[in-house]
């Protein structure tokens, strides 16, 4: 049976200002809850199974971290995909912005790891468009600690014409989901803020930081190269890994109509993730200015982790 929470207006968040209104599941502060699976052939989409989610009394109400009366309980079914979660429909849509805002969600799960949110909505003014169209996906900056409340934080940016109408809270985005059993995950106190600092620290929390890591012998190197040809010094293809902490030399040959202006070098760890996690820097971005192509050497100081190199260029004057 569907559980519907009566409507209470949630203030819209704009880039110019914001309100720290919570969805706490206490006072009719969202339109509805349900389940959602992004996988088209999910048994929850084909009708073979019904999703299970409900607002319930907080089973951990005695704990100081979160003693609110009600929480959202979601059955993380072994049959859902890695993007199967609890869907929370907002009372009012929230407009995205190219300036970041941070979504905070309290999570309690028996599994540690990252949480993902999918934002569903539509483009403002496209009246015939479904308001359940995928908008953005974000993975939490924090790892959730098993069996403890964690404040998972998500950085939200997007086109200013895009509206979020629902949030899907995905507790486990691993490619191979738990096969042996279902488990219950709890969510609470959803809040938008301009601060990415977790509302509280969770004992035993961890992030993917490289601070305690011993450096590897080799690191990966990747190029983002348009209008040029990149090759090793011997003319062959560039390798996929190079030695840590040593200069690296290679060739760039620009196409006729373009002159090189430099290289943008992203170096460090977790290059696909956020630059700062819990204020710990994962990677840096530096620019080397160049006036001509040919043999180029990346100094060893930039080879302090994995490297992505983007070739910067401009039109050759006519």
């Amino acid at each position: 049976m569907k559980r519907i929470i009566s409507i209470l207006l949630l203030s819209s968040i704009t880039a110019a200002g914001f309100a720290q209104e919570n969805i706490s599941f206490e006072n009719n502060d969202c339109k509805a809850v349900s389940t959602y699976d992004q996988w088209k052939d999910s048994p929850f989409n084909t009708g073979k199974l019904e999703g299970q989610v409900a607002v319930i009394d907080n089973p951990y109400v005695e704990e100081q971290t979160n003693n609110s009366a009600k929480v959202l309980a979601f059955n993380r079914s072994r049959y859902g995909s890695h993007l199967y979660g609890a869907k929370v429909e907002l009372n009012s849509p929230v407009r995205l912005s190219k300036e970041p805002v941070y979504l905070h969600v309290m999570v309690r799960s028996p599994k540690s790891g990252k949480i993902t949110i999918l934002a569903l909505g539509k483009r403002h003014g496209w009246n015939s468009q479904s308001n359940s169209t995928f908008q953005i996906a974000r993975t939490s900056l924090e790892n959730v600690t098993a069996d403890k409340w964690t404040d998972a934080v998500f950085k939200l940016t997007g086109n200013e014409e895009a509206e979020i109408h629902s949030l899907v809270l995905v507790p486990d985005n691993k490619s191979m989901t738990e096969k042996d059993k279902d488990y219950v995950v709890y969510f609470d106190e959803i809040m938008l803020s301009n601060d990415d600092t977790p509302r509280f620290q969770t004992e035993g929390s961890s992030t993917e930081s490289n601070h305690e890591m011993k450096h590897p012998e080799t690191v990966s190197i990747a190029f983002n190269s348009r209008m040029c040809n990149i090759s090793a010094v011997n003319g062959g293809p560039v390798p996929e890994t190079i030695p840590f902490g040593k200069d690296y030399t290679f060739n760039i040959q620009m196409d006729d109509d373009y002159v090189i202006t430099g290289l943008k070098i992203k170096h460090g760890f977790n290059l696909s993730g956020e630059q700062f996690i819990n204020k710990r820097q994962q990677w840096k971005e530096d620019t080397i200015n160049l006036s001509k192509d040919g043999k180029i050497t990346i100094p060893a100081k930039y080879i302090d982790g994995d490297i992505n190199i983007e070739v910067l260029f401009t039109n050759r004057p006519r």
């Binding site: 519907i4 929470i5 009566s6 349900s34 389940t35 019904e50 299970q52 319930i56």
Partner: peptide, 29 residues
Amino acid sequence: IDRTTHNPHLMQKKQFKHLLLGTFFIISV
């Protein structure tokens, strides 16, 4: 994005309380 499910399901509560206000339900476990 294809379809969503809208049918959460509850069972096996020792005691529950329904409070009907307009169009919502709260289940107490």
